[in-house]
Design a binder for these strands. Structure first.
Lengths: 109, 109
DNA sequence: CGCATACATCGACGATTGTCAATGTCCGGT
DNA sequence: ACCGGACATTGACAATCGTCGATGTATGCG
């Protein structure tokens, strides 16, 4: 999860930086960015692997691998229903990431 | 630069995904996240390499390399003054990145 | 000029990554 | 019980990455 105050506020310590970097690294790949986007924009906010493989133009194992990376990063949920695995985004995860990038000045009391 | 509508709005095409992913990949590294953070939080909003090497705990060539990656990603400015190279963040770059992560619903007119 | 300092570049290394074909696992239908 | 379909896992490969020491470049000072 995102854990800390905005980047520009105060220097990140090593452990915070490592945990935040893990998430950014997860979305630092074109295929995974597109997967995230395709899942979010899909009807119902969820999609199964078979709906993602062909428009992405990658093999099924590769798509499964990328989805696993996104789940491990806390960006996607995975729900198995019958034979299908449905993936949906974790909205507050993206919000938390955006908060780390926030450049607002701290309120001066 | 960030180029496009929020991730969750509509599926990214391949070229947009590639250009956005390049920037996220740049900050998908603990050392570079800390550099970004240290530069932003430094007095005057800028810092030279010699001020970053020791607190980061990495060699000077490595720090220079990471800074170059951040500059190439459009996240840092580099300004040479005398013998020193001062780096400062490009604020609108972080804002643009955060906009890509925005999860707000589109306004329904 | 000559030297020290600040930084970049180069070359090399082990480690990680993205991708695929092949195979394994599990579920639902016949 | 069998088979087919959906997905995950494995193993392998080239490519990229992070890091360092060594070296190059350029600036300022004596």
């Amino acid at each position: 999860m995102a854990c800390c105050s905005p980047l520009v506020r105060e220097p990140l310590d090593a452990t915070s930086a490592a945990s935040v970097a893990r998430v950014f690294k997860a979305i630092g790949d074109p295929a995974r960015l597109r997967l995230l986007s395709m899942v979010a924009a899909h009807e119902g906010g969820e999609a199964c692997v078979c709906e993602l493989t062909e428009p992405l133009g990658l093999s099924q194992p590769t798509v499964s691998h990328h989805l696993k990376v996104l789940v491990d990063a806390g960006l996607l949920n995975r729900e198995q229903r019958g034979v299908w695995a449905y993936y949906s985004i974790v909205p507050q995860a993206l919000d938390a990431l955006a908060a780390v990038l926030d450049t607002r000045q701290p309120v001066t009391p």
